[in-house]
Amino acid sequence: MSATTETLEKLGLPLKTAPWDPRFPNSNQTKYCYQSYLDFHRCERIKGEGHSVCQYFKDVFQDMCPNEWVEKWDGQRAAGTFPGKI
Rank of each mutant, 00 (worst) to 15 (best):
N28C: 08
Q35S: 09
Y37A: 06
S36A: 15
P25K: 12
Y37C: 00
Y37W: 15
I46M: 00
N28V: 13
Y32E: 02
I46Q: 02
S27Q: 07
I46Y: 00
D21K: 04
P25Y: 10
I46H: 01
K47P: 01
R42D: 06
P25D: 09
K31G: 04
Y34K: 11
P19T: 12
N26T: 14
D39Q: 11
Y37L: 05
Y37K: 03
N26Y: 12
K47D: 02
Q35R: 13
D21T: 05
K31F: 04
Y32M: 07
C33V: 12
P22S: 12
H41K: 11
P19F: 07
L38Y: 01
F24C: 08
R45N: 14
P22H: 11
N28R: 14
N28T: 04
R45A: 13
P19Y: 05
A18F: 08
A18G: 10
S27G: 10
N26W: 12
D21M: 07
P22F: 07
E44R: 02
Y32T: 05
R23V: 02
P25A: 10
H41Q: 08
R23I: 09
R23A: 12
D39T: 06
Y32K: 05
S27A: 12
S27H: 11
W20T: 13
E44V: 05
C33R: 01
D21I: 10
P25I: 12
C43R: 03
D21Q: 09
P19M: 03
C33D: 04
E44K: 00
E44L: 00
L38T: 05
D39K: 07
N28A: 13
S27K: 14
H41P: 02
Y37R: 04
N26F: 14
D39V: 06
Y37N: 12
R42G: 07
T30R: 03
I46E: 01
S36T: 14
Y37G: 04
P19E: 11
C33E: 07
W20R: 14
Q29R: 08
P19R: 15
P25L: 03
C33F: 07
T30K: 11
P19L: 02
R45S: 13
Q29D: 03
L38I: 15
A18H: 07
D39I: 01
N28H: 10
Y32F: 15
W20A: 14
T30C: 07
K31P: 01
K31M: 13
C33N: 10
K47Q: 10
E44D: 05
N28D: 15
K31L: 08
D39R: 09
L38F: 09
N26D: 13
R42C: 04
R42A: 08
C43L: 01
N28E: 12
I46N: 04
C33I: 11
E44H: 00
F40I: 09
A18K: 10
Y32D: 04
R45W: 08
D21F: 05
H41A: 03
N26Q: 06
Q35N: 09
Y34T: 11
R45I: 01
F40M: 05
C43G: 00
Q29N: 07
S36R: 10
F40G: 04
W20D: 15
